[in-house]
Design a protein around this nucleic acid. Structure first.
Ligand code: SF4
Ligand code: SF4
Lengths: 145, 145
DNA sequence: CTAATTGCAGACAAAGTTGTCTTAATTAAA
DNA sequence: TTTAATTAAGACAACTTTGTCTGCAATTAG
């Protein structure tokens, strides 16, 4: 499994938000927790992170909850993953080195850069709007079967 | 960073073995540990795993150490990574689900499958033999700079 | 045989990730 | 204004990963 639990929970939660009918405003975290079977308090922390990073907004109190902070067309899978796993998750060195002279690359570098660019390109194209459409057409599996 | 420390250590160690002159037989783990700055006992455990999985062979005692168990042409980066991170590391579900009906895929599936196949193809082509040649030509960076 | 050298095994510790619980702060509605 | 609903905050626990330490087992050299 490539992504951490934090990341998987975050992805599924955001996808859940993206598939809610537009007339719904704030969605309680408890609802997401139950529907997606994610530990409530853990999910709360994860979503607080996403809120701090500007992906979602929250409101306390009755009728409170969370909602996407941007239109779905401006949210893609790549930036959500990177905000959780780290900005260099798809762009760092394959050997885990932090400082490296890419002008004088090692034997693995070129191949690795090609993979990374492919991943980033593909995930970057996946905005929630496109996904929402496809989810309406095909359904989205958000729970273990 | 996509890979665990275990995996990075294993990769670097195997690459180190692959770049040793052929007249060297068993290489002491201590040497690898020092040269690559990897904790000795941790590395020992990791390499024991690789030995159990048939990638390397070991010999105790004076003049002992480890060596690759197969010709470099038959060892590629993909199988080493998968042996450590798990066989489904590049083939599992993007949402982390274990059981899923791929005949009736969700909205993310097709794109994800394309990425995974690309990764597996590229990493599967990287056998140590090719790398060794390139390493002789270009050098391989095995240490943080 | 003895001694030196090496990998092997397992207990343990440190650090990071994942998850639980309790309490406080905030908001809307009765 | 009270009450119920909800996020926020932080302490803590369970688990996993990463790393350390000590001693044992096997091999070679002398
Ligand atoms: S040149 Fe090699 S070591 Fe440096 S960033 Fe690229 S893959 Fe990593
Ligand atoms: S169909 Fe969706 S949930 Fe199922 S394996 Fe593919 S990506 Fe995962």
């Amino acid at each position: 499994m490539i992504f951490s639990k934090r990341c998987l929970h975050a992805l599924r939660a955001v996808l859940y938000l993206g598939t809610q009918p537009p007339e719904r405003d704030f969605i309680p975290i408890r609802e997401i927790s139950k529907k997606l079977d994610i530990p409530f308090h853990f999910l709360t922390k994860i979503l607080k992170d996403l809120a701090d990073k500007g992906f979602i907004e929250s409101s306390r109190g009755a009728a409170g909850g969370i909602r996407l902070a941007k239109p779905t067309a401006e949210l893609n899978v790549k930036e959500i993953i990177e905000s959780i796993e780290g900005e260099d998750y798809f762009s760092g060195c394959i050997l885990g080195f932090s400082k490296c002279d890419s002008d004088n690359p090692c034997a693995l570098h070129d191949r690795w850069v090609a993979i990374k660019e492919e991943i980033q390109k593909m995930l970057g194209e996946e905005h929630l709007e496109v996904l929402s459409t496809r989810i309406q057409e095909q359904g989205l599996r958000l729970l273990e079967m």
